[in-house]
Design a protein around this nucleic acid. Structure first.
Lengths: 220, 220
DNA sequence: CAGGTAAGTTTGAATCGTCAAACTTTTTGG
DNA sequence: CCAAAAAGTTTGACGATTCAAACTTACCTG
C-alpha cells in the first residue's frame, strides 16, 4: 500500500491532471495542493516514478500511470464514502466533512469501507454531489455545466459543488444551493462580473462569476 | 497531539502498569506489546519522559504521568467507541473489530468521535464488555471476577472479555459466551486445569483455566 | 534575441521511528 | 556470594518525509 504521504500526492496529481488540457500536472501546483515545498514535491514525484505510480521527464509535466490512477481513484472512493457517512449517518455539517475525511481516508481498511458502502446503500454521489467511484474503480460519468454558463431566466438544478472550502459551502447552503435543489438564474451583470441566483424558499444571492464556476448545474 | 507511535506506547504502558502490582511497566513488556525491539522502546520511553508523558529512572520501571494517563485514556475511548460503532452500526463481526479500531483510533478527530458517541447513544461498554471512558476521562468502575474463580454450579453472567484475539473471540461466541449472556459453571477439573461452562441454548464448552482468566463474570 | 522571471532540480540537513549489535545493570539460582 | 541470565541502555545506521537554499532550465516579454 502507498503511504499516507504518497496517497496525498496521488490525489493531487490526479485532480490536477484531470483539469489540465494537457493531462499533466506541474510541480508547483502539486506542491501547493499538498502543502509542501516545490523541492519536496520534486523529490517525491521522482520516488513515485520509481514505484511506477507516476511518469515524468525532468522539467516536464507529471502524469499518473494506470496503477497510479487506480490508486488515486481508490483514495477518492474512500474519501467520498467517508464524507457521505459523516453527513448521512453522523449528521455532521457538510461544510466540515471534507477536512475530516482527509484524515480518515488513509486509515480505513477495505473491509470497513465496504461495510460503510452497504450501510449507506451504495450511494453514487457524495454530499457535494461528486460521484463516488465503484469498488472496481469505475466512475459514473457526470453531466452538467458551471452555473456561470447559464443565461438569466434559466431554470437549473444544482448537481455538484467543486469547491470544498467550508466558508463557500456554508454560504451557498444558506441560500439553498445544495446538490439536488432547484433554482432560477435571476440575472447576470457582466460589468460587475456577477450572477444572481434564486432558489425557491430562500433569498436570492449574487455572487462573482468566478465563484459560480464551482457550482455545476443541469437545466431543469 | 501525540504521534501515532507515541499513542501506541501510551496504550501499552497504560495497560501494563494497570495489571502490574507495582503500577509500573517493564521495557521488555512494552516492546513486546508494541511489536518493537527493546532498544526502540527504551529510546521512545526516554522521549516520552522528555515530553512529560511518562516518568522513569534508568533501569527502573516506567509509569505514566497524569498527562500521559489522560492521553492513554483518550486513545482507549476512541478505540472502544470505534469498536462499538463497527459492531453496532456496520454489523462487522466482533472478532475482527479490534484490529480495525487499532488503525482508525489514531485518525479520528474529537468532532467525529463525539458525533459517533451521540449516534451510538453514549454506550458505556464496548462489544467486548470493556468500559468506555467518558469524554472527561472518567471510567465507570467495573465489577466481576475471572470465570476461573467460580465454583461448579455457579450461575454467572458474562461481563467482559479481556482477550482481543479473533480466534478466542470466535471460539467463545460459538458457545454463547458474549458479554451479557448467562451460563452455568458445569464443572472444574483441577487435574486437567480445565473448566466447563454451559450457556443455555449452546453446547457446553471446556477450556483451560488459563483461558477462563480472560472471561470476566458476575454471579447471576 | 536577450534578459528576467517562473518553474523545476539538487543538495545538505533535520526529525521521526525503527533495527542490530555492543555494552551495562540487575536479578536470580545454586 | 557469585556467575549466568534477563533486562535495559547506547550507538550507529537507515528509510521516509520534509525544508531551505543554491543551482539549472524553460518560458515570456520587450
Amino acid at each position: 500500500m502507498a503511504s499516507e504521504a504518497i496517497e496525498n500526492y496521488l490525489k493531487a496529481i490526479y485532480s490536477l491532471s484531470r483539469e489540465s488540457p494537457t493531462g499533466e500536472a506541474g510541480m508547483k501546483a502539486i506542491a501547493t495542493l499538498t502543502g509542501v515545498t516545490v523541492g519536496t514535491a520534486s523529490t517525491m514525484v521522482k520516488r513515485m516514478a520509481g514505484a511506477k505510480l507516476a511518469k515524468y521527464e525532468r522539467f516536464g509535466g507529471v502524469r499518473l500511470t494506470a496503477r497510479g490512477e487506480r490508486a488515486a481513484i481508490d483514495v477518492q472512493r474512500r474519501h467520498r464514502l467517508i464524507e457521505t457517512f459523516l453527513v448521512e449517518t453522523l449528521k455532521l455539517d457538510w461544510s466540515i466533512v471534507h477536512a475530516e475525511a482527509e484524515r480518515l481516508e488513509h486509515a480505513i481498511s477495505s473491509v470497513v469501507l465496504e461495510a460503510l458502502d452497504i450501510h449507506l446503500h451504495h450511494p453514487s454521489v457524495d454530499p457535494h454531489g461528486d460521484p463516488i467511484p465503484g469498488p472496481d474503480g469505475k466512475i459514473r460519468t457526470e453531466r452538467g455545466a458551471a452555473l456561470s454558463t447559464f443565461a438569466p431566466g434559466s431554470k437549473i438544478r444544482v448537481a455538484r459543488i467543486t469547491d470544498q472550502g467550508p466558508a463557500f459551502l456554508s454560504f451557498i447552503a444558506e441560500h439553498g444551493l445544495r446538490p439536488g435543489t432547484k433554482a432560477i438564474v435571476a440575472a447576470t451583470e457582466s460589468a460587475a462580473q456577477s450572477i444572481t441566483v434564486h432558489a425557491s424558499g430562500y433569498a436570492a444571492v449574487t455572487m462573482a462569476v468566478a465563484a459560480a464556476e464551482s457550482i455545476i448545474c443541469e437545466s431543469a
